[in-house]
């Protein structure tokens, strides 16, 4: 399972990541950060669907997203 790490203190809640995610697993959370922005989050129940495509991170103007991609054992052995 690939995953994203979202730095909530950097996030400005613009939600551009949510519109580019091909799996639609990003959404606005109900949490606010110290800047007063309602931050984005990866829906925990859908987190497994993350493919590590990096679309959200490329779109993020504030470099708040780091993407970790997991290579499946079958692919890694190739």
């Amino acid at each position: 399972m690939s995953r994203i790490v979202l730095d909530e203190e950097r996030c400005k809640g613009c939600l551009l990541c949510t519109v580019v995610c091909p799996k639609n697993i990003l959404r606005q959370s109900s949490r606010m950060n110290a800047q007063g922005y309602k931050v984005a989050e990866c829906a925990p129940e859908l987190a497994e669907e993350c493919t590590g495509c990096t679309a959200c991170a490329q779109m993020c103007p504030d470099l708040a997203i780091v993407v970790w991609r997991t290579v499946k054992a079958k692919e890694a052995s190739r």
Binding site: Y37, L63, V67, W68, R69, T70, V71, A76
Partner: peptide, 22 residues
């Protein structure tokens, strides 16, 4: 399964948060 860093901040971009609007 191995995990690789697919996207992170490039070293030439400072960690300073930007003043730009959301």
């Amino acid at each position: 399964m191995s995990e690789t860093l697919a996207f992170t901040r490039t070293p030439s971009v400072a960690e300073t948060p930007t003043h730009y609007c959301p």
